[in-house]
Amino acid sequence: MNESRPPILRIRDLHKWYDDLHILRGLSCDLRAGEKVAIIGPSGSGKSTLLRLLMTLESPDSGEIEVDGQAMWSTTPAGRTVAAGEDVLRRIRAKLGMVFQHFHLFPHLTVLRNITAAPQIVKGIARDAAERRAGELLEMVGLADKANAYPAQLSGGQKQRVAIARALAMDPSVMLFDEVTSALDPELVGEVQDVLRQLAHQAAMTMLIVTHEMQFAREIADHVMFFDAGTIVEQGAPEQIFSAPKEDRTREFLQRVIDR
């Protein structure tokens, strides 16, 4: 039924090199709007690189990326890979939100200002409207009482929940999560996962979640991609990937992480 609509994210034959390291090796995939996708795979396999390319923090060496039908990177008839204009890129980027492993909260701003900064500065939203929205988001992530705290006064789990609220304040339709619980003490992982679960209930929200928590991936995702050496080795429904992986590399990887 969704096949008639263009995918919200369309990636074709994406290549990325760092000097002579071939990090992404011809990656292709489609994401439908509202889909919750978990990306798993060994570290160094290019998961973060993919998210950073989507966020235009880096440029691909070749390949195509389309967001919601708009080309971000495309191939000319002559075979060259070119970026869309700065305007288009900015408009596309505004549809994406990203949460980082190490939070990257702005240390000089309060929690509230961390959340309202971009809506006010980038979108020109009035201060009280931005603050009202920030209040709702803080409520949602359970930190309404921390609005005036500085990041230094928060625990890791709280920082990450603020970072999620900050990204959501820009009303993205796709959220990218890059190992958002990996830098947390084990007892703080749950509170951040709870926020992600809550988000996953929103049907319209597309989520791309890089994670090392297999149990969580299985629970939250309706589609799982297994990355290795810069390509998608295997993808499918969580049940299939985790219970009956087809590829040897998937099986080996799952064996290794579950043994740990």
Binding site: L96, H102, A117
Partner: peptide
Amino acid sequence: VPAGQVQAAAALSMNRWQTMRYIVLPQAIL
């Protein structure tokens, strides 16, 4: 100023000038 700060600002769609003015300079001044 840590590169993550610039990346976070870019992920929030801030342009170079906005990132410098609101995120990088206030931290660098200290």
